[in-house]
Structure formats: C-alpha cells, structure tokens
Nucleic acid binder design. Structure first.
Ligand SMILES: [Mn+2]
Ligand SMILES: [Mn+2]
Ligand SMILES: [Mn+2]
Ligand SMILES: [Mn+2]
Lengths: 219, 219
DNA sequence: AATAAATTTTAGACAAGCCTAAAAAAATAT
DNA sequence: ATATTTTTTTAGGCTTGTCTAAAATTTATT
C-alpha cells in the first residue's frame, strides 16, 4: 500500500526529475513538499526500502521504474480530474489545482478508466499539460519557457509551469491564455524582464519569474 | 479542521442515531469503524472537546448540532458522488459505495455545489437514500424494513440499508431492484426467514438478515 | 443484595509523518 | 590545503490514530 503522503513525495520527485538530469537533492524535495529536510530524509529511506526510489545518503534521490509508474498514475489522475472540473463542472482553470490535489489520491483503476472515457480521452489538461495514458506514456512536447525566447520572435503559448490561482488569474488579466500569439518586444538585460505583445493594442511588461512559468512553442 | 477519521466517526454516529432514540454505545461505534472500543473512547473524548458530540464516560454518545451538521455534509457528498458514478460514469449500483467512501472526504463547498447542479439536483442516491440539501435538510421517508411487514401484504422496494457489493449483487440476482413489488408469501416463526414474490413466476426464500436490509413502503 | 458477566475506560505502547537542534559530510572560499 | 559555509543526516521528541492488557464501572443473574 502506498499512502497519500508517499504518493505526493513520488509525484514531486518525478516533477523535479523532469527538470534535471542529475540526482534530486533533499532540499529541493523539502521545498516542494513544504516540509523540513530532516523529514525528507526519513521519507526517502522509507521509499527506498519500498523500492520506489534509489537513494544513498548524501547522494540525492532518483525514482525507480516502479516509483515513476506510481508518480505517473497520480499525475494522470490529477490532470483528468482537472479536465473534469473545467469541462464538466464549469470551473475556471485557475480554481481547479487545489481540488485536484485531493482527488488525485482516490484509489480506483476502474474509476480512472471510466473518467477518462467520460471525458473523451483528453490529451491535455486545462493548463496545457499532457495527460499520461493508461500505461503511463506521455508525449515529449518540447515546449520552451518564454524566458528563453529571443527578441522579436513570435511564439504560441501552450502551457504553464505553475498552477496557483494567483498566477493564473494574473495571466488572465493580461490576456495570456492558451493559444495566444506572443511576440517579444524587448528584453531588459539587468533582470531579464520583458515587454511582450499578445495580439492586443497594448504591450505588457512581465518579470523573468512570470516568463519562466509560461510554456511556448515556435510558430 | 476536521480530519478524514473524525468525519468517519461522525458519520457513523449519525447513522446509528437514526436507528435508536437513546445514546450510542462505544461498542456500536467500534463495530462500524472497525476499530477497538479503546480507540473509540479516545476519539469520543477528542470529538467532545471539539464540541462535535456530547459525551460523558460510561454514558454513551450523541451528536451535537454542530456534529450533525458535519455528518450530514459528508453524507450529502457520499450520496452525490454515488449518483455521479452511476448516472454519469455508468457504474453499477453495487460498485460505487467504496469509491464514495473516499470521495466523500474531498473538501470543497464549491465542488459539491457544482456537482449537485451537474447531476440536476438529485433527491435520491442509487440505493434509494435521500440526499441532504445544502442546508442539511433531508426528508423523513418513513420506509419500513421488509422484515417488519406482515404476511400477504404487498409493498414497494424503496431502498437498501446496506451498500456492500456482495449484498447488492445478491439482490440483483434474485430480482430485487428499486421499485419492485414484493409480496410476503410465508414467514417462518423460528428464524423469521421469509418466502417472497417480487413479480416473477418463482418465489424467493430470504433470510431475516436480508429482509432487515431491504427498505419498503406500503402500496 | 451479592456475584458474575459484559461493557467501557485507562495505561502503556507503536507506526506514520512531522518537527528542532546537533552532528556529520560535502561544497565553496581563502 | 585549510577554513568556512551549506547541505544532509541523526537524535530525540510530538501528534494522530491505532492496539493490547488491565482496571473500573455498569448491567444481568442468581
Ligand atoms: Mn494542477
Ligand atoms: Mn494541470
Ligand atoms: Mn454508499
Ligand atoms: Mn447510498
């Protein structure tokens, strides 16, 4: 049996792994789980005993095949429930992440299967994240962060790397929705903030932090 | 904050209260929570401190207004989710109880409200149980147990007092579905088992235990 | 009314998941 | 190469929810 808490650790280690080649550090996990490093060490030892991660002290952590499988199932459920909440219950995309954080731990293969069917086998969640299929397969999309795009280039917004209500509401306010065409007007050297245009008459000024959390693809 | 576990205790005390006038005993709670009496005593003290139950040692327990309110909210969620699982995802009525036991603890008023709307404000769950409204109001239906019906009487099956898969599958097998017309053909004095007819050519012989868990109303 | 039986509570313990403070190891700077 | 800083682990402790065994209380029986 894998507990609610263990599932959350696995999911977080999975996400960190997607951003890094190397081992994941104890501190990185502690930050995302909102716990202290000492607690993470305890949990890593436990997950290691269960063969869900490979871990040797001071060496960082990595998911095993089995651990990645569990993480992908949780992510699949999270994203399917988000689709349900937005497409069927009429929630806004900025309201669903926290609820999905709870729903993702409901245990029933049959439920996930039927939910997937009910939603018509969606490929992406409301934030543009791909939904792993039954076997944990998920397309590599190769989206880039807006922060890495050069001046004068035009790109299409495909997703967000953060699901907090405040961030998503801010994006809505400046007209940054999935599918928007975004042109980089200007980049400030000193803090990497940028001025962008997303189709409207007026340009917007966004911080590097914001640009990092917007996922785009080239036109 | 009310934990998952506390919610389950409150729900169980609520259900036991519906069947009895008097105080609920520690042992009765222990049986339904599948824990030991000692654990129940601990929890009752805690719930009492939180003003969710009134409890004095050796005197049994009763829900306070506040406790009943919490219990009704959990029951409302349980039943709405069961409707969702059957009506929208196509589950059979005998497959949904365990999943609803998990879903009933998801915390979001907004979610419950929207789910209710999505399901078109259902009044009953798939097992014939009434669904409490937003304010915790629920009709008194006055259904009787089939075990209390006299010989030669015909009644209509309106619900079940137990949601286990095995019980519900057994009912399906003998053609006992909601809405069935049931006539008592014979009652055996010694063990209160009965022979019934539910519309088909052949009669069925059912135990007292089964009859106790079938809810009916007079025609 | 006294005794026996059943129920309930208390006492003490344990696992899960978290914490703080101190020690150990690794990384960085001098 | 040493010293300093940062990261990670260990040690010990806390809370929640559970358990078993023993003690207290209530209920039932003679
Ligand atoms: Mn999300
Ligand atoms: Mn998402
Ligand atoms: Mn149920
Ligand atoms: Mn039900």
């Amino acid at each position: 049996m894998i507990s609610f808490t263990e599932e959350n650790y696995l999911k977080i280690i999975y996400k960190l792994s997607a951003e890094t080649e190397s081992e994941i550090s104890t501190n990185a996990v502690a930050e995302l789980t909102q716990t202290k490093a000492a607690s993470v060490t305890d949990m890593l030892r436990k997950l290691s005993e269960k063969q869900l991660v490979s871990y040797q002290k001071y060496q960082g952590v990595r998911l095993t095949e089995k651990g990645a499988e569990v993480a992908l199932k949780v992510i699949r459920k999270h994203r399917l429930w988000e689709v349900f909440l937005v497409n069927k219950l009429g929630f806004n995309w900025d309201e669903v992440h926290e609820i999905a954080e709870e729903l993702e731990h409901i245990n029933s293969e049959e439920l996930v299967q039927r939910l997937d069917e009910f939603l018509d086998y969606p490929q992406f969640d409301p934030h543009g994240d791909p939904i792993p299929d039954k076997d944990g397969k998920m397309p590599e999309l190769g989206y880039k962060n807006l922060s890495g795009i050069a001046i004068n280039q035009t790109v299409v917004m495909m997703g967000v790397a953060q699901h907090s209500t405040s961030f998503l509401q801010y994006l809505a306010k400046i007209g940054m929705n999935l599918g928007a065409n975004v042109t980089i007007i200007e980049i400030n050297d000193f803090d990497k903030s940028m001025t962008i245009n997303n189709g409207g008459n007026s340009n917007y000024f966004i911080s590097h932090e914001v640009a990092k959390n917007i996922l785009v693809k080239k036109k």
